[in-house]
C-alpha cells in the first residue's frame, strides 16, 4: 500500500511510515547514546527524565535515526518512530485502536501503539504522567518479558515485532504529587536523566541549531545559566535549551538581542512582573543592545 501521498504544500504519511531521513543534530552530554543502544538491543523500555526543552524528544529522534545503522534493520532509513503526546483525556482506545462506522459496516483502525508493536517501531509516549492512570496500565504487559499488547475489543493478543521499544518521557519538575508516576509503571523502565547541558555545550547547540554566531550563542548560554539560578526562587522552571535556540534564531535573523530575549525568554518564562523585570535586568547586563 502506498503510504505517502504528495499534496500541494504538505506531505501526508502514515505514522508507522514516518522516517527520520537526515541525521538530527544531537550533542551527547554523557553516555546516554550508549545506554540507549544497549537498552534497545536488550529490549529494556526506557524512561527519559528531565525538564522541558532539555532534549528528550530530540534524543529519541536521533536514536531512531542512528539505530538502524547498528542493528541493520531492514528499513534503510531508520527505525520508525511513533510519537504520542499524552493528555488527560487519552483513552485506551486512543492508543490501541477502535472500530469506525463505514456505511453500514464497521472497520477496525489500529491505534498508534498497535501500529508500533506491529512494525517494530520505537513508540514514544511524551509526557506520560499527563495520561489517565487506567490508560498507563495498558502498557504494562508490553514492558515486561511478555512484550504483548492485548486488544480487548477484538479479543486479540499482539506480540511485538522485534524492533519495538517503548520509550516514555517524564518531567519530574513541575508535576504535582497528584500526577506522579505510579510505581508499578515507573519500575518497568530504565531511566536516563536529562538536564540542561553545561554552558559550552549548550552554546554549541544554540549555535548549531539556530545559526547564530558562536559569541552570541555563548552569551545566551551564560544568560541561561543565570536565569536557571532563579529556579524555585520565582521561576518554576529554568529556561529551556529550546527557548534559547528560538532566541538564537530570532537574533540570527535580525532581531536585536535584548528584544529577542525579552520575547523568547522573559515573556515566555513567566507572567510575574517582578520576575520578568529581574530577568530583563540580567538580559540587559549581558547584552549591550
Amino acid at each position: 500500500m502506498t503510504t505517502t501521498e504528495q499534496h500541494s504544500g504538505f506531505k501526508q504519511i502514515q505514522v508507522e511510515d514516518f522516517r527520520i531521513t537526515e541525521e538530527p543534530f544531537y550533542l551527547p552530554i554523557s553516555d546516554e547514546i550508549e545506554l540507549f543502544e544497549t537498552a534497545y538491543a536488550q529490549k529494556v523500555p526506557v524512561l527519559l527524565k528531565g525538564p522541558t526543552g532539555s532534549g528528550k524528544t530530540r534524543f529519541v529522534e536521533y536514536m531512531s535515526w542512528k539505530l538502524h545503522q547498528h542493528i541493520g534493520n531492514v528499513e534503510a532509513e531508520g527505525v520508525p518512530l511513533i510519537t504520542v503526546a499524552c493528555h488527560e483525556d487519552l483513552t485506551a482506545s486512543d492508543l490501541v485502536g477502535r472500530y469506525l462506522l463505514e456505511g453500514d459496516d464497521t472497520r477496525w483502525i489500529d491505534g498508534p501503539i498497535t501500529r508500533a508493536v506491529k512494525v517494530g517501531a520505537i513508540c514514544y509516549l511524551d509526557e506520560i504522567v499527563e495520561a489517565r492512570k487506567d490508560t498507563t496500565v495498558l502498557i504494562h504487559p508490553l514492558t515486561d518479558y511478555r512484550r504483548l499488547l492485548p486488544i480487548d475489543k477484538r479479543g486479540e493478543l499482539l506480540e511485538s515485532a522485534d524492533g519495538f521499544l517503548l520509550v516514555m518521557s517524564y518531567n519530574p519538575g513541575y508535576q504535582s504529587a497528584l500526577k506522579d508516576l505510579k510505581h508499578s509503571t515507573r519500575q518497568r523502565f530504565m531511566a536516563i536523566e536529562f538536564d540542561y547541558p553545561p554552558r559550552d555545550q549548550e552554546a554549541e547547540i544554540i549555535h548549531r541549531e539556530s545559526g547564530v554566531d558562536r559569541a552570541v550563542a555563548q552569551e545566551l548560554a551564560k544568560l541561561a545559566e543565570k536565569v536557571r539560578n532563579l529556579k524555585e526562587h520565582g521561576l518554576a522552571e529554568g529556561v529551556s535549551t529550546r527557548l534559547l535556540v528560538y532566541t538564537g534564531k530570532l537574533i540570527a535573523h535580525g532581531i536585536r538581542p535584548r528584544r529577542a530575549c525579552q520575547t523568547a525568554i522573559v515573556w515566555a518564562l513567566t507572567d510575574d512582573i517582578e520576575v520578568q523585570r529581574s530577568i530583563e535586568e540580567v538580559v540587559t547586563s549581558i547584552f549591550d543592545e
Binding site: 539560578n229 532563579l230 526562587h233
Partner: peptide, 15 residues
C-alpha cells in the same frame, strides 16, 4: 529591592 534580589541571585547562583 525585590527585583535586585532576584537579579543578584540569578547572577551569583547563591541565596
Amino acid at each position: 529591592n525585590g527585583m535586585l534580589r532576584m537579579y543578584a541571585k540569578a547572577l551569583s547562583g547563591e541565596q
